[in-house]
């Protein structure tokens, strides 16, 4: 049976004192860790959607904290559309290795082979195939019953009403009118076979909280977040990364622009911003002075009014 509970330590453990008043980041961290532990304990096969972005990086650190000194008790899943920046994939593999987590990668190979891209189709149908369909296929393939996502309620209007445990029917779909009430910190994890729950442990974090936490905790993030001279197609106000050649319109030539990405998505649909912010404090300073929501340069959110809500109904995160 169980081993004795106490052991003599070779050296006394570090003692960390706690300030009399907890900061907002400590309180947000506490809430998220509680959620991570609940899900790991109540579901048979949870998985963490790992998208390589800053929110995923924070979520991963919170998972390390939640189960320390034990390893993270669930795998990471990356939905690879084939259009991710090369730096993102390198970062992903290093990150999974350094935290010792199992990394699963899923691609909708059939759609990728068929040449699916957001210009040949439209962004909505492209996302539908390469993200939503791939995600649903992966969840079904591995039989996952709970999937963590790094989405925050402050990102987009329809997210403001999302639950922390977001119930999805057996087709993976979200019905905003039929969500379970969520009170205190008591989450309802009961599902029937085939149904699943998307879990958002960062629901109550804002973009500013995420950056401050990355700063305080020294969490590594992809280099694309930091300003650098990068070749871009300049189209009106938009800066388009040159990662995929089909993005270019006739006669467009890339120019070097000091720029960075504010959120990481697929290269054809993620615009960069002009910026000099080359460190995390500089990014935070930029954020303070800068009043545009971070998804504003993602093509997918403003195809049409309520587009995020429509995608979520269909099974998108």
């Amino acid at each position: 049976m169980a081993a004795p509970a106490t052991l003599t330590q070779a050296s006394p453990p570090e003692r960390k004192s706690v300030s009399p008043r907890l900061s907002h980041l400590q309180l947000l961290e506490a809430e998220s860790i509680h959620i991570l532990r609940e899900v790991a304990s109540e579901f048979e096969r949870p998985v963490m959607l790992y998208s390589i972005g800053k929110d995923s990086s924070v979520m991963l650190r919170l998972a390390q904290k939640a189960f320390y000194p034990a390893p993270i008790p669930f795998p990471l899943l990356h939905i690879d559309t084939g259009f991710k920046f090369a730096e993102m994939l390198t970062f992903r593999d290093e990150m999974a290795r350094s935290v010792g987590a199992e990394l699963l990668v899923w691609r909708n190979e059939a759609a990728i082979a068929a040449g699916t891209n957001p210009i040949a189709l439209d962004t909505k149908r492209c996302c539908g195939l390469l993200k939503t369909q791939a995600l649903l296929d992966a969840l079904r393939h591995y039989n996952f019953d709970a999937a963590f996502g790094g989405a925050r309620r402050d990102e987009e209007k329809s997210r403001a009403k999302e639950r922390i445990y977001s119930f999805r029917d057996s087709a993976g779909q979200w019905d905003p009118k039929n969500q379970r009430p969520e009170l205190w910190n008591l989450y309802n994890a009961r599902i029937h076979p085939g149904e699943s729950i998307r879990v958002f442990p960062l629901s109550n974090w804002t973009e500013m909280d995420v950056w401050q936490y990355i700063h305080e905790e020294k969490i590594p993030v992809v280099d694309l977040y930091f300003a650098k001279e990068r070749p871009m197609y300049i189209r009106g106000d938009a800066l388009l990364p040159i990662e995929q050649t089909f993005v270019a319109r006739l006669g467009e030539k890339p120019q070097l622009v000091k720029s960075r990405l504010r959120s990481l998505g697929c290269s054809p649909c993620t615009g960069a911003i002009r910026s000099d912010a080359d460190s995390i404090p500089a990014i935070i300073a930029e954020l303070v002075s800068f009043r545009s929501s971070e998804r504003a340069n993602r093509a997918i959110d403003h195809d049409q009014e309520g587009s995020m809500e429509i995608k979520k109904r269909e099974g998108y995160f």
Partner: peptide
Amino acid sequence: AKVARIVTYDGDLAEAPAPLPVTLVFDLEL
């Protein structure tokens, strides 16, 4: 039992107030 250690990823704590998430280790096996 008695609390032997208050374990966190950021090091053991000398004191932990609500609502912190922690891992407790006891002096006896329960």
